[in-house]
Amino acid sequence: MTEAATVSDRLSATGTANALELRGVSKLFGALAALEDIDLTVRPGERRAVLGSNGAGKTTLFNCVTGDFLPTRGTIRFFGEDISAFPPHERIRRGLRRTYQISLLFTGLSVLDNVYLACVGVSRSRFSFLRPRRDDALVASAEDLVHVVHLDDARDTRVANLSYGQQRQLEIAMALAGAPRFILFDEPAAGLSPTERRELVEILNGLPDHMGYIIIEHDMDVALRVAESVTMMHNGRIFKQGKPAEIEQDPEVQALYLGGGHG
């Protein structure tokens, strides 16, 4: 990766700070506590799976971290910097990325244009009045990302004409734009076919080592293959964290989550 130098610079600049550090984060929707007093620490480069039943607060957790919603209470630190009050774009520019549970794409644009837009968003050309030249570096990196998520054949296809699985892959490509330091994947595997899941696992495992992420995933099998640690959520709280093997064996977890319909 050409960004390797800048990434390691940033890492050394931020010292030993954690990639993500949440302290006492709560989010209330009226009387409903979607998140209650969340403490969460993720190291740089760490890959974490977040599991939990429907409505556990997983997506809300992501929304609070990216600034889509402001948390009701609590502080969020990103590589040591308190980003709690930052608007979303400021957090993104610091190297945070996310995908959405329900794809949010520009359906009138081509695949490459969507990724290009993502690359421009974290570059200095955001306000450029000049069209990209043939040898534009951002276009080139957009093309690379399209390749990373195996969408080369669909590169010039309008997003509206993509299959569901392809749209999920495009979401991932857009999250990889620029030089992300940490990515939040919201159920990227949901609704994918077994083949597409295998491809997804391949893409995630192919990411450079310094790129940590949190992945929300209902499917234990996928989660175990792409994450080195697991956080279990229930009713807006974290109730268990640990290595995948420990979590799988935990009787409480089995009773609450794995017992409930999971094969």
Partner: peptide
């Protein structure tokens, strides 16, 4: 919202 999440 999507654009903000892309850094705009």
């Amino acid at each position: 919202r999507r654009m903000s999440a892309l850094g705009y």
